[in-house]
Nucleic acid binder design. Structure first.
Length: 554
RNA sequence: GCUCCCGUAGUUUAAUGGAUAGAACAGAAGACUUCUAAUCUUCUAAUGCAGGUUCGAUUCCUGCCGGGGGCACCA
């Protein structure tokens, strides 16, 4: 529709004397009261005529009226010369019929046209806690994956995990000292104890042994890694996320080093015993790729990872989702990758999200100042359990609903804002069950389902073509869902969906409060039920894209 | 010091260069014999400062102020 309107306006501009109108935009106005589509052409082109933008608008509208599209019911001029278009109710009811017919697939697009895409996100480190920062990365990465999948991409999910390095050595050292400690505690013990130079030396020794796969530590190390990974899997299951590929740092070092050495002359240089990449030439900074002990750093491993990923899954696009603290690091590595493998670099996109911070400052697993994902979900779940305790539900239902609502509340709080921004995580402030929250959307969805159930009981038919009422704002929002999905995909920004669903849910809840939907004596009832069905579908599909469960009762 | 990102009601935040800056929470007042009140209705309240570009700036540019990240052998 947008395209048709744009073409028409361009034609009209040619008619009134603009040879080559290149600056024509048609958008949804910010406020539904201005109509469904709006164009600012009169403001843009008024300078080229000796007339006010309002007069030009008048002239254009009189031309537009002559060739009015059947889907457009009304054309108006408002403000300083905006031309506003309102959609005909027949068009809207047809759209609603389409939504109900498509169901689960409503909103799908094919803008990515089966593009092979690998998305890396979450990246927790074995031997350390899976904390709320990982939860943030996972929530955003999973939502992005789902959104681009819905837009036609062929997605593989990947997780890259640091199973070697000093943090592992610290944990192993702690475990050797205190075999009864959990791995998280063992890590904290190692981290604190390393202040002692003698212990630090022991940890470095352990680190070296792990790199060399020393048999004396092999068993303990393997046990710890396995335990961590199994625990991560439990969390992934609860978050309804999964990975197709797992990559480990222990597998990326060797070849990474070789790569750097191969390109040593051309791209890298020796400096103070290390092999570095001088980023200054490109407005970046210098980073070490091979340290003076001859070991590959994270930078070198990252280069290798790009290759390994491509070997596993020959991608058209590789998306890496991380927190924004590594932005500058990533630019340098990307530049080096570009000089070595320009084709891979071109396909690689870094998407960074904000950091989850505590009001007291940065989280640190070293000092034990972390909130684990598990404890957060558990605590939220407890609060919800209290809320559902007096509902007429079975214990099993209560348990399931509490879990779903807890996950929904947490994920929503992460996805409701532009993903680049930090979240200062304050339990009471950040997690809400009311208003702009996950449970609000979930509740609205169950409400719609409950209406539909009643309609079924009372045998109210659904009739989309009944034109006894003027279209409400609900319908005028419903047809936009695919556009929202598309934009969220193009910009890798799930929060457009969040904002949209919130607006839709708000309209539906007002509608629900004002009008009785299921009413066999009301001739409009079938139409209202039809709208309710469409709302339920869009909420369900939208929540699925965000990775937020949509319970049927709550 | 260099560099990147960010400053919107009391708080958390939205706004492809457009119209009266949109929500939510908190605060004040109201609405359940009704399809689930995790809801709805009404009110109070915001673009850090100073310039510039533009018909039009929260958005783009410059400077300042404030906050955060990064800047050599950690990951």
């Amino acid at each position: 529709m947008k395209k048709e309107l744009k073409n028409l306006i361009e034609e009209m501009l040619k008619k009134v004397g603009i040879q080559n109108p290149t600056n024509v935009s048609v958008e949804h106005p910010a406020d539904l009261s201005y109509g469904d589509y709006s164009s600012n052409v009169a403001l843009v082109y008024s300078k080229e005529f000796a007339m006010s933008s309002n007069d030009l608008a008048l002239k254009l509208v009189s031309e537009l009226e002559k060739e009015r599209l059947p889907e457009i019911e009304k054309i108006e001029i408002a403000g300083r010369g905006f031309i506003n278009f309102s959609l005909a109710s027949s068009f809207l009811s047809k759209t609603i019929a389409g939504i109900n017919k498509n169901g689960d697939t409503y909103g799908k697009t094919n803008i990515f046209n089966k593009e092979k895409t690998i998305v890396e996100y979450t990246d927790p480190n074995p031997f350390k806690e899976f904390h709320i920062g990982h939860l943030m990365s996972n929530t955003i990465g999973e939502a992005i994956s789902r959104v681009i999948e819905y837009n036609g991409a062929e997605v593989k999910r990947a997780c890259y995990q640091g199973d070697v390095g000093l943090h592992v050595a610290k944990a192993v050292w702690g475990k050797l000292k205190n075999p009864d400690a959990s791995w998280g505690e063992a890590y904290a013990l190692g981290a604190i104890s390393q202040a002692d130079a003698r212990i630090k030396a022991e940890i470095i020794d352990i680190n070296q042994k792990i790199y060399e796969k020393d048999p004396s530590l092999f068993l303990l190390y393997g046990e710890g890694k396995k335990e961590s990974l199994e625990k991560f899997e439990e969390i992934y299951k609860r978050l309804e996320t999964h990975f197709d590929y797992y990559f480990f740092e222990s597998d990326t070092g060797k070849f990474g080093k070789k790569l750097v050495e191969k390109y040593k002359e051309k791209i890298f240089e020796k400096s103070e015993g290390a092999v570095v990449f001088k980023g200054e030439k490109y407005g970046l900074h210098t980073r070490v790729f091979i340290n003076s002990q001859g070991l590959p750093t994270y930078e070198a491993k990252e280069l290798d990872l790009a290759k390994i990923k491509y070997e596993k899954y020959p991608y058209d696009k590789s998306i890496v989702v991380t927190a924004n603290e590594v932005n500058e690091y990533f630019k340098v590595v990307h530049k080096a990758l570009e000089l070595m493998f320009p084709d891979l670099a071109k396909k690689t996109i870094h998407i960074s999200h904000g950091m989850l911070r505590l009001p007291e400052g940065k989280m640190s697993s070293r000092t034990g100042k972390v909130i684990t994902a598990e404890s957060l979900i558990g605590e939220v779940k407890e609060r919800i359990k209290e809320k559902v305790s007096d509902r007429k539900l079975t214990e099993e239902e209560k348990e399931k609903i509490s879990e779903q609502v807890a996950i929904g509340a947490i994920k929503y709080s992460i996805l409701k804002q532009t993903s680049g921004k930090d979240i200062i995580f304050d339990f009471d402030k950040s997690l809400s069950f009311e208003g702009d929250s996950g449970p609000y959307l979930q509740y609205t969805h169950t409400r719609a389902l409950s209406v539909l159930n009643k309609a079924k009981e009372e045998k109210i038919p659904q009739n989309t073509y009944l034109e006894v009422r003027l279209p409400s704002n609900i319908e005028r929002l419903l047809y936009r869902f695919p556009e929202i999905v598309e934009r969220a995909g193009r910009e890798y920004e799930p929060h457009y969906i969040t904002t949209y669903l919130m607006e839709l849910a708000g309209l539906f809840n007002s509608f629900y409060a004002k009008e009785k939907i299921v009413d066999s004596s009301d001739p409009q009832s079938p139409y209202k039920v039809t709208i309710t069905n469409a709302v339920a579908i869009v909420l369900k599909n939208g929540l699925a894209l965000l990775g937020i469960p949509a319970p049927e009762k709550m």
